[in-house]
């Protein structure tokens, strides 16, 4: 286990080691959904919730079940199963007990299973040897960072609608380049904290 204050991990995951801008994770749904601020905020919340819970769950599964049994190589299959099962369960619970939330969040939940940021956070947690609290903070921070990036992007894209953009660069091309500029802007935070 590495000795880093969990709070530092949280801040680093939001700003300096942003899941999307420095690790390229969660790009597919990012590009598809970031058209509207409101929807991207909902998606961001759903991702943050699932990320935090699944990193904790996967931590327990990995260190208390897979490692004692010597089955570390199965981690890919087990992690993806845990994530899929958790998303399914969360979907049912939210539908049953929080119906209004379900209607705003519900359609995004199945999408999240294949969001690489979720699986990526679990894999990073193992590679960087985080403890339980550190993992939870890492998951939470990654989710918040991802939300921050997607909401900012949605805001920019709404304004881009009225901009004259060269033909071939429209839509996806300009989005990718904007993400590049955002990644450079986030470099400004790099002095605050650093992990890894």
């Amino acid at each position: 286990m590495v000795e880093i204050n969990p709070l530092i991990i949280l801040i680093a995951a939001v700003f300096t080691n942003n899941m999307l801008l420095s690790n390229f994770l969660g790009m597919c749904s990012f590009i598809a959904i970031s058209n509207e601020i409101k929807t991207s905020l909902y998606l961001g919340q759903a991702v943050t919730f699932v990320l935090t819970c699944t990193t904790a769950l996967n931590y327990v599964v990995y260190y208390y079940i897979l490692v004692p049994l010597g089955l570390e190589y199965l981690k890919f299959i087990i992690f993806i199963l845990v994530i899929a099962a958790f998303v399914q369960l969360a979907e049912m619970l939210i539908e049953r007990y929080m119906t209004p939330l379900y209607y705003s969040l519900g359609i995004f939940l199945p999408l999240i299973t294949v969001n690489c940021a979720i699986l990526g956070a679990s894999l990073f947690m193992i590679i960087r040897k985080y403890g339980l609290l550190q993992s939870i903070m890492f998951g939470l921070g990654s989710g918040i960072g991802w939300t921050l990036a997607i909401v900012a992007m949605a805001g920019i894209r709404q304004n881009l609608k009225h901009a004259p953009i060269p033909k071939g660069l429209e839509d996806i091309g300009i989005t990718v380049i904007t993400i590049g500029i955002m990644a450079m802007a986030f470099l400004g935070f790099s002095g605050i904290v650093s992990i890894q």
């Binding site: 420095s22 071939g168 091309g173 990718v176 990644a183 470099l187």
Partner: peptide
């Protein structure tokens, strides 16, 4: 140094998409 950073990858991909789409058009 920009090319070693993540931002470089985004710019390269953006350019590549731009070039292929323009050629096709």
């Amino acid at each position: 140094d920009l090319m070693k950073m993540p931002a470089g990858a985004f710019f390269m991909l953006g350019l590549l998409i731009w070039i292929t789409r323009s050629l096709e058009a």
